[in-house]
Write a protein that binds this DNA or RNA. Sequence first.
DNA 1: ATGGTCGTTTAACGA
Length: 260
Amino acid sequence: MKIATFNINGIKARIEALPEWLSEARPDVALLQEIKSVDEAFPREIFEEMGYAVETHGQKSFNGVAILSRLPLEDIERGLPGDETDDQARYIEATVVGERDALRLCGLYLPNGNPAPGPKFDYKLAWMERLRTRANDLLAQEIPFVMAGDYNIIPQAEDAAQPDSWREDALFRLESRGAFRRLMNLGLTDAFRSRHPEPGHYSFWDYQAGAWNRNNGIRIDHLLLSPRAADMLTDAGIDKEIRGREKPSDHVPVWIEIDV
DNA sequence: ATGGTCGTTTAACGA
């Protein structure tokens, strides 16, 4: 089963590039972030005609996540538990059943957190603690899971072309990396890192200042696997080349192959 | 130090 995460930066803007990538990469599951659309406005028919089940958790103008799946999706849950007052659409879960196991899919768009320090940074750190609690609950239930999305976290210096320019940024501050490490320390596996330990792999290049042409990128889109899911991992990759196409997102897809 | 670019929505704001 091929599972990909892709921050599309607006479904309207990606209405051609997204189906094109789907028909080439043919993921069984695509976890999408920043659909920037309410559920009713998401063009689900385009993807249903391509054979995908479509589940969205959207809001107007900002944020919004979705799951596309060639296999049926069950037990869909929208929103990250732990704060009834949080109305930002950043999290969706569903179960997909493989040949041997059921796998819980957790799609997330973690808050950017800039400017830091400040209320947006506090929201990011609190959100990460809620995510850790959710991961801990799934582990306690012994449900194999993939937690995938735009984490807005550069885990280590080798995940940035110019780490020193990110030191004060919410994506790379010590508090952010500490919160990410606490999540990882539950026993999760960074799927891409586990297969590609060498530095210099990125999933995001800013639209500004020729970041793509200079390869000034960062790796902030991750698929974290529970121990049982990690045992089933067979491959991982980044579809880097689509960043150089017409009208690209500033992120590219990151994917895994998992023998569920 | 500033602006550099997109997307959404149409004047800023978020990233």
